[in-house]
Every structure is written in structure tokens, then in C-alpha cells.
Simulated scan of single mutants.
Amino acid sequence: MKNIIRLVLLMGIVGLNAPAKAQYAVEPVEGFTPQIGIVVDMLEEIKDRIEADVRDLSLAETDFRFDDRANSIGALIMHLAATEAYYQIETLEGNAWSAEDMAFWGAASDLGEASRETFTGKPIAHYLDIWDTVREKTLGGLKSRDDAWLASEIEEGVNNHWVWFHVLEHASAHMGQIALVKQRFPD
């Protein structure tokens, strides 16, 4: 009997701490077709995790580079926004980057010397706000598409689903890079 009471108490404690949405479940987001809703859930989850890791950084931490060839966290966030903007324009608008797009996103896209010079002196909120703006446009575009569109090819052997998987994969890789940069912050 004591074991049953302990089990009931433990289940009650666990139940009180359970989140409203399953913490480790990928589920379609309401308002999107089922497959696109799953992609959106994953895109939002990785973005939320990255934002949680960086949102409280100081300006010095946002700009920190651990060597001359490294990128700052600010530059990495801009790179994530640029990558999403590129695929958004390609898949949701059916266009290539314009000269204006390239002028705005070019340094962030390349993560080279230009990004190291360009993305400095701004708080992390600046970069996160830009990424939020890009994401809003992405979500609006995905909301107007269906699962057949997601499975359709944009060129031979490349479909929209792979492209948006790549955006997710890209964010995941740079999340690891952001963690590395944070580990190298001066004490």
C-alpha cells in the first residue's frame, strides 16, 4: 500500500510540473496544413532555443569573437536570418535575390570578413528583431501553401520540403557554433 501511495504522489508531482504542450513532441501547428505545420513546429522550436540562449547577452558578448577568423553571435544570428530570407524569396516568392536583397543580406550570408566588420556595436535584440521580421514573413508564406506544394520540386532533385529542412538543419548547426562562442567568453 505504501508503494502505491508513493507512486500516486510521484505521479501528482510530475503532473504538476508537466507543461501544457508536450515538451518533446513534434506536432503540426494549427493554421497550417499537416506537413507544413510539422515543419513550422520544428522551425519555431529551434528558433526559440537559440533565442533563449542569446537573448540576455551583453553588447560585449554579442560582439565577442574568440579569434580573427571567428564570427560573433550577432553575425551568426544575422546569418540565420539571411539564410531563411534567401530560401523564403526562392521558394515562397519564386524569385532570386535582387540587388537590394544582396546589398542588405550579402555580408550576413557569407559570414566572411564583411560580416565581421558589419555586425558589431548593436545589441542582440537588434539581430533577433530582424530574424523575427523574416520569420513572420516565412510563416505568412507557409500558411498560404499546402502539403502538395511542400512536396513539389523547385529544381530537379530538390523539393520545398528539403529546402525548409535545410533551414532547420542550418539553424541547428549554428546553434552549436553559438554554444562554442559562449564557452569562449572571457571569464
Rank of each mutant, 00 (worst) to 15 (best):
K2C: 09
N3A: 14
N3I: 12
L7R: 03
V8R: 02
V8Q: 05
L9Q: 08
L10I: 05
M11C: 10
G12I: 05
V14Y: 00
G15S: 02
N17G: 15
N17I: 14
A18Q: 13
P19D: 15
Q23Y: 12
Y24G: 02
Y24H: 13
A25P: 07
V26P: 02
E27R: 13
P28A: 11
E30L: 15
E30R: 13
F32M: 03
P34N: 14
Q35I: 13
Q35P: 05
I36N: 00
I38E: 10
I38L: 04
V39G: 10
V40W: 00
V40Q: 11
V40Y: 00
V40M: 07
D41W: 14
M42H: 00
L43P: 04
E44F: 09
E45K: 10
E45L: 08
I46Y: 11
K47M: 12
D48L: 15
D53Q: 14
V54W: 07
V54P: 07
R55H: 11
R55M: 13
D56M: 12
L57R: 03
L57D: 02
S58D: 05
F66E: 03
R69A: 07
A70L: 08
S72C: 11
L76I: 14
I77A: 07
I77D: 01
L80Y: 03
A81S: 13
T83S: 10
T83D: 07
E84N: 12
E84F: 04
E84P: 05
A85K: 15
A85R: 13
A85Y: 15
Q88I: 00
Q88V: 00
I89Q: 01
T91S: 12
T91V: 06
T91I: 02
L92H: 03
E93D: 07
E93A: 06
G94W: 02
W97F: 12
W97I: 06
W97C: 11
S98N: 02
D101S: 08
M102A: 15
M102G: 05
F104W: 10
F104N: 00
W105I: 13
D110N: 10
L111D: 04
G112K: 06
G112M: 04
A114H: 06
A114I: 01
S115P: 01
S115F: 07
F119I: 04
K122V: 02
P123V: 00
P123D: 04
A125Q: 08
Y127W: 12
W131K: 10
W131Y: 12
D132H: 11
T133M: 08
T133N: 09
V134E: 10
K137T: 10
K137L: 09
T138C: 09
T138H: 07
G140K: 03
G140V: 01
L142A: 03
K143V: 08
S144Q: 15
D146R: 14
D146H: 09
D147K: 01
A148T: 15
E153P: 00
E156H: 12
E156I: 01
V158M: 11
N159L: 00
W162V: 15
V163Y: 09
H166P: 01
L168H: 11
L168V: 14
S172T: 13
Q177D: 08
A179D: 00
K182A: 07
R184I: 05
F185G: 00
P186F: 05
D187W: 00
